[in-house]
């Protein structure tokens, strides 16, 4: 049965469904409900919730729990995510699975608490030091806050890598019907974990490889893993792209707005379509190129000054113009605004 649920709360419910019994976090608007509901719910199913002294500690607790074989998560927003980057680099380096929910707000610096999509670079390209990747999933609805959280746990374990739920303040704060079905989570065996028992006594969780050859071998191993992830885990969806002459591209809340823009544009006789990346890393380049087949131009809309647009350009590879429209600071464009921006750019381009 459906329940009206806030996006942030759906994350916690989904985490519990996925078998997550460990949450370490630090409050920050607009992600705080995730910690609040984790504090309320996770101990009731025998799990651990701990409010850490900082995001730095929280992510290192995540590291510890992941090392000990737990399905573990944390949640934060921009400034807290910045503090977590060290730990995320260590998690990736030590190949520890975990889920990090980033409910993005406006930055840089303290910025404000209104929605933005300006953590795209720091989550998809690294953010911390070293050659590593996060698996990044971008929900656009409350139902997806749940389903992609569950998927994030699955992928994190599959690839032994941090997985990020990259949401924005809107998706985190809004309420929509959430339809959950009780399923037993499939948590894979983790023979590499350090559990404080005889079986795992010989195990070591570490990101140090002192000699250059060993370090290179480790980085190559990670690289191969990321390639496999790129082959298997690209996810996206399209809306009315079959005959689209202009392709709108947006993720998260923006994809919802653009869906309405597509309909508006078509009411005005413009054959628009929508491409929405669900996985931001790996970026669904091939699917995007396919969706753009009938198009003569692409317009990317983001709540940033232009981050994902770089990946779109790489995917389109110069075959057609890629336009960009961004709003920042917590301002969110309406469907009508996006339509006007699209039409303005079409006059120039056609």
């Amino acid at each position: 049965m459906r329940q009206l649920c806030k996006g942030n709360v759906a994350v916690v419910k989904a985490a519990i469904m996925a078998g997550c019994r460990s949450f370490y976090g630090y409050p920050i608007t607009p992600a705080s409900e995730i910690a609040e509901y984790a504090a309320l719910l996770i101990p009731q199913v025998g799990g651990t919730f701990l409010q850490a002294e900082s995001e730095v500690s929280a992510i290192n607790m995540v590291y510890g729990a992941a090392a000990a074989g737990q399905r573990v998560m944390t949640a934060s927003s921009g400034p807290g995510i910045s503090l977590m980057q060290e730990g995320i680099s260590y998690l990736a380096g030590a190949e520890l699975p975990c889920v990090i929910a980033d409910v993005m707000r406006a930055g840089p610096g303290l910025g404000n608490i209104a929605p933005e999509q300006s953590d795209y670079f720091c989550m998809t390209k690294g953010g911390g030091h070293g050659c590593y990747r996060n698996i990044v999933l971008a929900p656009s609805s409350v139902q997806e806050m749940a389903s992609l959280t569950m998927l994030a746990f699955e992928l994190a374990d599959k690839y032994r890598n941090p997985a990020v739920l990259l949401a924005d303040g809107f998706v985190g704060q809004m309420m929509e019907p959430l339809d959950l079905e009780l399923v037993e989570p499939v948590v894979p065996q983790k023979p590499w974990a350090v559990k404080g028992d005889l079986e795992t006594r010989k195990n070591l969780i570490s990101s140090i490889h002192l000699t250059p050859d060993l370090m290179e071998a480790h980085i190559r191993h990670l690289e191969e893993k990321y390639s496999e992830c790129e082959r298997n885990e690209c996810r996206s969806e399209t809306y009315r792209t079959e005959d689209a002459e202009v392709l709108l591209v947006g993720y998260g809340i923006v994809s919802r707005i653009l869906r309405s823009t597509v309909d508006l544009a078509r009411q005005h006789g413009v054959k628009a379509g929508l491409f929405r990346p669900i996985s931001l890393w790996p970026f669904p380049s091939k699917a995007l190129a396919t969706a753009a087949k009938s198009a003569v131009k692409v317009m990317v809309v983001e709540l940033s000054t232009g981050q994902m647009v770089e990946d779109v350009k790489l995917s389109i590879n110069g075959s057609m113009p890629v336009e960009f429209y961004g709003r920042v600071g917590g301002n969110v464009p309406s469907a009508e605004e996006c339509q006007a921006e699209l039409f303005a750019r079409m006059e120039v381009l056609v």
């Binding site: 370490y24 290192n60 607790m61 000990a68 260590y90 030590a94 350090v194 006594r201 969780i205 570490s206």
Partner: peptide, 18 residues
Amino acid sequence: TGNVQAAHGRAPAVATAV
């Protein structure tokens, strides 16, 4: 024994969760 290497200064946080 089981071993977990940690970032600079963070061992008590890591140990907490372990």
